[in-house]
Nucleic acid binder design. Structure first.
Lengths: 147, 147
DNA sequence: TGATTTTGACTTTCTTTGACTATTAATATT
DNA sequence: AATATTAATAGTCAAAGAAAGTCAAAATCA
């Protein structure tokens, strides 16, 4: 098995326990007896946004590479909601969804409030009234996909 | 965790109680087993004016470093941005703003991403193209007001 | 042969350290 | 009382150290 696959496998094993993995690039490279840049290669080819991964890093002393992934149960829940959302969403229905999201820990309160504000009539003032609910539906779906 | 982070954390803990922190540089350095100038490093990289901190100091016997946080500054920063935002905002200009917000710790990356998605052309698909930039401006202002 | 993987030299960013400088307060001297 | 000296602080700046990023050449695989 090639080394990139082994590294990928190793990272995925750490993911078993949580949705965040923090790596030290050079130790990992040592561990697999490869050059550090191979870690970048693995990350950039396997832990990509399209697969629900998000990567942050920092250089310098105490540097790190942090990979987060969209939790899979969350992922399922999100897709089910996206299915349910039709082509229109009123402000009040959105509020109900948002409360649910908070209850299920999909969002924290601040984020929920932010979405509420973003999708409010006030924000959508310039949009024709008849179209607002459609825009809201599109926006919420898009947001959910990217959470 | 690296030493600068520990020092930052310690100072932030003192801030829990009040809006002013008075430090003795060398004792702090002793406490964290580092050279005194590291305290300056921490202050100059983390307790910066952009984030609403104001630093005073005095040398000589009984010298000190005093950090105050201006609660209003973040708010002032937000208001100044709201002023600056005109009636239209393109997707690309929004990206610049969001980067600034992340840099100034006004938003974390996920929240910024969420806003980006919410205000994207994809979300605003049903809105007339000519109107999208206006809607974006309204939305961002509303979001900022409610942060 | 074309795509993927491996390697490594070079770059960039952030942190730590320490030598040297500047300022202030306290104390001693005139 | 005014002035000089000493001690106690803090500030500055650049070098060294500790990561991670980039990019393209070389190697390997299908």
């Amino acid at each position: 098995m090639k080394i990139s696959d082994l590294i990928e496998q190793y990272i995925n094993e750490i993911f078993e326990g949580s949705d965040v993995v923090e790596l030290n690039r050079s130790s990992l490279a040592d561990m697999f007896n490869c050059v550090p840049s191979q870690i970048n290669y693995v990350i950039s080819t396997r832990f990509i946004p399209e697969l629900g991964f998000y990567v942050e890093s920092r250089r310098g002393g105490g540097g790190y590479i942090k990979i987060s992934r969209a939790n899979s149960t969350k992922q399922e829940y999100i897709s089910s909601i996206i299915q349910k959302i039709g082509s229109k969403l009123s402000q009040s229905v959105i509020d109900i969804y948002l409360d649910d999201f908070i209850r299920y820990n999909l969002l924290d309160k601040n984020t929920a409030l932010l979405i509420k504000v973003a999708l409010s009539d006030k924000s959508l003032n310039k949009v024709d009234k008849q179209k607002r609910d459609e825009v809201r539906a599109d926006m919420l779906k898009n947001i959910l996909i990217n959470i």
